[in-house]
Computed example of a mutant assay.
Amino acid sequence: MRILLIEDDQHIGDGLWHGLKKNGFTVDWFQDGHEGQCALEHTPYDAVILDLGLPSIDGMDILFSWRQRHLNTPILILTARDALPNRVAGLNAGADDYLCKPFSLHEVVARLLALIRRSKGQSSATLCYGQLTLNTSTKTVFLHHTPLLLTQKEYLLVELFLLHPQQIFTRAQIEDKLYSWDQEVDSNAVEVHIHNIRKKINKSFVLTRRNLGYTLGDKP
């Protein structure tokens, strides 16, 4: 899952960036509000963490602009503005959740996962596909009730297909989901990940659609 983080505080942003990455998220962090605002308009993020007290543009203006343009990505407001009228205003402007500083990283992760699940029409953290089960909260995968060892990118790719079982993804779309802007991507990285997933699950778990991309295939 790829997260857009817009936070100008260096200490808070650095802690969130490292903490979210350790929890399996791909994270793009912007300290400038205008840059972060443009990022959502060009990249398919699964959720946004938005600070309101940004120096160049108020976070509420960014939120209002996104919702006016019908960008429906789940948004978690993270701010020091803890007064009730501020929380109500943020939610009424289109935010999906509101968390005041100081905060716990564990709560941020839990709220993000809940927002993303709801946006995908999932009520449970457990995704099942035949004999394969994946838990988005614990980041664990079981095949025939046996733990399946996946690399972080392999896990993210399996999660992506399970969350979008009918969608065909191009290689570029998969790269957008797996890699942040500061990561270099080998030209055959996606193919290598898919090859390894097929070896670990089954050959037809991921199907190749000629000239289109990849999609979820047979149940293991």
Rank of each mutant, 00 (worst) to 15 (best):
A83P: 02
V108C: 04
W181M: 08
F205C: 00
F142S: 06
F25W: 11
A110F: 07
D218S: 13
H144S: 09
E184Y: 11
L5K: 03
E154Y: 11
G13H: 04
L52E: 03
G121D: 09
L134R: 02
L132V: 11
A83D: 12
G24W: 05
H42A: 14
L54K: 01
Q37N: 14
H195I: 13
L150P: 05
T43E: 12
H11Q: 10
I197Y: 05
H11R: 10
L113F: 06
R171E: 12
H106L: 11
F25C: 09
D9T: 02
S204L: 10
N86S: 08
S65D: 15
D58R: 07
G19V: 06
D8Y: 07
L115C: 07
L150K: 01
P220F: 11
Q131D: 15
S56V: 09
T73G: 04
S119W: 04
I116S: 00
L132S: 03
W181P: 00
R111K: 08
L99R: 03
N188P: 06
D14Q: 10
T170G: 13
T26A: 15
G53T: 08
L207D: 05
P165N: 12
K219V: 12
H11T: 12
Y129G: 00
E35G: 05
Q122W: 08
V27Q: 01
S123E: 12
Y155K: 03
C38S: 10
R117E: 12
L160Y: 03
H18G: 09
L148Q: 01
I12L: 08
H70K: 09
C128S: 12
V185Q: 08
D28W: 04
V141W: 02
L162M: 15
D51M: 05
I168F: 13
L207K: 07
E35H: 11
L127Q: 01
L157I: 06
G36N: 01
L63E: 02
L156W: 05
F103I: 05
H34C: 15
Y129Q: 05
T146F: 15
V192G: 09
F169K: 03
Q131R: 14
P74L: 00
G15Q: 14
V27F: 09
E175W: 04
E175P: 01
M60I: 11
A39W: 03
N72S: 13
K22T: 15
D14G: 10
L16W: 04
H195P: 02
E175Q: 13
L54W: 07
I197P: 03
T215Q: 10
N196R: 14
L115R: 03
L127I: 09
G15Y: 05
L216P: 02
F142V: 10
L76S: 01
N196L: 13
A114L: 09
L52F: 13
L207N: 04
L52N: 00
V48E: 03
L4F: 02
L4C: 02
R210N: 11
D96P: 01
V185E: 05
H145I: 15
Q37E: 11
T133M: 10
L207P: 02
E154N: 09
G121Q: 08
D58T: 09
A125Q: 05
P74I: 00
I201K: 00
N188W: 11
N188G: 07
L71H: 10
K177I: 04
L148D: 00
R171D: 15
D186L: 08
